Simulated assay, not measured.
Amino acid sequence: MLWGVSGVAASTLFILNAHVTPLWLTQVRMISAGLILLVMGLIIGTHPFEIFKQRSTSLRVISYGLLGLVPVQWCYFEAVKYGSAPIATIIQFLGPFIISIYYFLFKHTKPSRAEGVGMVIAFVGTFLIVTHGHLNSLAISPVVLFWGGLSAVGVATNTLLPRPLLPKFGAINVTGWGLFLAGICLNVFGPLWLVPVTLTWQEAGLIAFIVLFGTIFPFLMFAHALGYILPTTASLLDAFEPLSATVFSVIFLNVQLTGFDLVGGALIIIAVMILSINAQKILNLFRRWRTD
């Protein structure tokens, strides 16, 4: 839920202060959260600098930051600015299907029946959001679709790239370095210190919320939860992200969503649930229940 609320906080910040850009906010978020996580790693003795002792692990953590975290955070904020937090979050939620497509194209892993059904449902949901049922026009800006699509790709790379590093170096160190390095590298597109941003206390509070409650705390809670629940269950619970983004946007920002947006978003969430649940096990349980 906090991940979804952070999108609403960012949308509020873009409305309140025209000088706060998605790039600037992403840089502040990544560098601040990355430093905090790395300091935590030092304090608890996880040896954050061990990751740079080998060339292969150094390159992978850098690629994780640039190819995984940059699109999943910067591109997401761009989609929020040009569209809305609910639409940006729903489009980003298509990331698991990009992972399935990757495995099909490059690993030659044939999609299961559940994945096939889920992809069809997700396509229908995306179609409804993008066109509102009209084939000759788009209901959302192509800019929103572009940035949202990149953020969905980022979800896939953000999931795949760090996996070999996590067992050896730990989630705190890997994510901390990924965030920090990505935030530093984004200065190529616009140096953070050259942006003339003056913040009110309210705006500074929103930034602090995004860094702490939209980045660090949910990451730590999610990583901790994986010690108690299965990754598939975690993926199902992640459906609260677009739901919370929608609810809080409607309540606090008066964002107007059409029936097509709501139905399309619901279909995408259902599709991801189908992808996450082992459909064959459920079917076998149902058959066993009927037999008993």
Rank of each mutant, 00 (worst) to 15 (best):
Leu2Glu: 03
Gly4Ser: 06
Gly4Ile: 05
Val8Glu: 02
Val8Asp: 01
Ala9Met: 07
Ile15Tyr: 10
Asn17Lys: 03
His19Ser: 15
Val20His: 05
Val20Asn: 01
Leu23Ile: 08
Trp24Ser: 01
Trp24Leu: 00
Leu25Phe: 08
Thr26Gly: 08
Val28Phe: 09
Met30Ser: 04
Ile31Met: 13
Ile31Lys: 10
Leu37Gln: 02
Met40Ala: 05
Leu42Tyr: 12
Gly45Gln: 09
Thr46Cys: 01
Thr46Phe: 05
Pro48Lys: 02
Pro48Ala: 00
Glu50Phe: 09
Glu50Lys: 14
Glu50His: 11
Gln54Lys: 15
Thr57Gly: 02
Ser58Val: 03
Ser63Leu: 14
Gly68Ser: 05
Leu69Ala: 02
Gln73Glu: 05
Trp74Glu: 10
Phe77Gln: 04
Glu78Gln: 11
Lys81Gly: 01
Tyr82Asp: 00
Gly83Cys: 05
Ala88Ile: 04
Thr89Gly: 03
Ile91Leu: 13
Ser100Pro: 10
Ile101Leu: 15
Tyr102Lys: 08
Tyr103His: 11
Leu105Gln: 08
His108Pro: 10
Thr109Leu: 15
Pro111Glu: 02
Gly116Tyr: 14
Val117Thr: 15
Ile121Pro: 05
Thr126Trp: 14
Leu138Phe: 14
Ala139Glu: 11
Val144Asp: 00
Trp147Lys: 02
Ser151Asp: 05
Ala152Arg: 14
Val155Met: 14
Thr157Cys: 06
Thr157Gly: 06
Leu165Cys: 00
Leu165Thr: 07
Pro167Gln: 05
Phe169Val: 01
Thr175Val: 08
Gly178Cys: 09
Leu181Asn: 07
Ala182Gln: 04
Ile184Asp: 03
Asn187His: 07
Asn187Glu: 02
Leu192Pro: 00
Leu194Ala: 09
Gln202Asn: 14
Gln202Thr: 15
Ala204Leu: 13
Ala204Lys: 13
Gly205Ile: 03
Ala208Phe: 05
Ala208Pro: 02
Ile210Glu: 07
Val211Tyr: 12
Leu212Ser: 02
Leu212Met: 03
Phe217Arg: 08
Phe217Cys: 04
Phe217Asp: 00
Phe217Ser: 02
Ala225Ser: 13
Pro231Asp: 02
Pro231His: 01
Thr233Tyr: 13
Ala239Gly: 13
Pro242Phe: 08
Leu243Cys: 06
Leu243Gly: 05
Val247Gln: 08
Phe248Thr: 14
Val250Asn: 11
Val250Gly: 09
Ile251Gly: 06
Val255Pro: 10
Asp261Lys: 10
Val263Ser: 00
Gly265Arg: 01
Ile268Arg: 08
Ile270Met: 04
Ile270Gln: 03
Met273Gly: 15
Ile274Pro: 00
Leu275Lys: 14
Ile277Gln: 04
Gln280Thr: 09
Phe286Pro: 03
Phe286Glu: 06
Arg287Asn: 12
Arg288Gln: 13
Trp289Ile: 10
Thr291Gly: 08
Thr291Pro: 06
Asp292Gln: 15
